[in-house]
């Protein structure tokens, strides 16, 4: 049976594959040039990073666990990112939810429900993969809880030993008058395990750089799933919160080929304990499943950046471990 799938696909690929421009000689030449360019470019950067690591007491090799990580239970432990090594590719490998309930998930879940329940003209709902609201509106007892997962960093595909806890929750939030709901998500990342602000992966600009949680602000044109013509504009602003929090608001407009426009709003907050909160509201899908014709005239997220910021600031500080 497996052979059936493999053989059928092989025959189809053989028949359909256009000539390839990939050659061993060309790739080797290009690879050699890029390595040379990277080495030259990284010489200065490496010196600065090493100096910072030594003076800041962060001289951790990739994979060396922070001794404070497991010791502290009343103060937030630090999860300093590995010092990048030249020519090494770092990539996060998100884990599955490994703890469904602990002190932090309980505190976060208990705090989030009343905040969402108090959003005017909105109802948290369950939504299935076929695009249908299912069941009754969510209540305090059916509202999804926060979960914890462990993310690790691989260097050139090999685990470094670096791990950090991430706490997340997402749900659907249907605003009055909208025929489909927004997606609302909250995540927490621990001190040291991220760089504040947005920055794109140089090789894949629609993805964040491995140290960041969001891609770059500004204008971006790109291909998605082989389909060119996608345009994304992200407007960012940096603020200071009432308790000294560092805040960045990000409003993103994405236009697909054909002109269908979608929107999202994000707020990231670095709190005084060093942790990061990321709160996001993705506007409703502008088209119904199976159609390229929008049936929502203005699919903007229901919560403004100001309201998202208030909500993010109202969430509690918790120890992430």
């Amino acid at each position: 049976m497996t052979d059936f799938i493999r053989d059928a696909l092989d025959r189809q690929l053989d028949a359909a594959a256009p000539p390839s421009g990939l050659t061993s000689g060309g790739l080797t030449h290009l690879g050699r040039r890029r390595v040379l360019r990277k080495r030259l470019g990284l010489t200065g950067v490496t010196a600065v990073l090493l100096a910072a690591a030594v003076t800041g007491g962060l001289a951790l090799a990739p994979g060396t666990p922070d001794p404070g990580v497991h010791a502290a239970t009343t103060t937030q432990a630090d999860y300093p990112l590995p010092v990048p090594q030249p020519g090494v590719e770092y990539r996060w490998q998100p884990g599955n939810s490994d703890i469904t309930e602990n002190q932090a998930t309980r505190e976060l879940s208990a705090a989030l429900w009343p905040l969402i329940d108090a959003v005017p003209n909105a109802t948290p709902v369950a939504y299935d993969s076929n695009g249908q609201v299912v069941g009754a509106p969510l209540t305090a007892s059916t509202f999804p809880s926060f979960t914890r997962r462990t993310d690790r960093i691989d260097a050139d595909g090999v685990p470094t030993g670096y791990e950090r806890p991430v706490y997340t929750q997402f749900h659907w939030l249907k605003f009055d008058g909208m025929i489909r709901p927004d997606v609302f998500s909250v995540s927490y990342r621990p001190k040291g395990s991220y760089e504040f602000g947005g920055a794109s992966d140089p090789d894949n600009p629609t993805m964040p750089d491995w140290r960041h949680v969001a891609e770059s602000c500004g204008h971006m044109e790109y291909a998605f799933r082989g389909e060119p013509g996608w345009v994304s504009d992200t407007t960012c602003a940096e603020l200071t919160g009432p308790g000294g929090e560092r805040i960045m608001t990000m409003g993103q407009t994405t236009v697909a080929p054909g002109g269908i426009t979608s929107y999202s709003r994000s707020v990231m907050i670095q709190t005084p304990d060093g942790n990061l909160r990321l709160v996001q509201d993705f506007g409703p899908t502008p088209t119904v499943y199976g159609s390229d014709t929008p049936d929502i005239a203005d699919p903007r997220p229901g919560l403004s950046l100001e309201r998202l910021t208030e909500l993010a600031l109202a969430l509690p500080a918790v120890i992430l471990q």
């Binding site: 690879g31 050139d156 090789d203 799933r225 082989g226």
Partner: peptide, 25 residues
């Protein structure tokens, strides 16, 4: 991805990353 051009681009990118990491992997 269902697109030969996109597929070739991605494979080229992946192989160039592999070249950089060849000594390790």
């Amino acid at each position: 991805c269902g697109d030969w051009h996109r597929a070739e681009d991605v494979v080229q990118t992946a192989l160039l990353k592999l070249y950089r990491a060849w000594g390790r992997v």
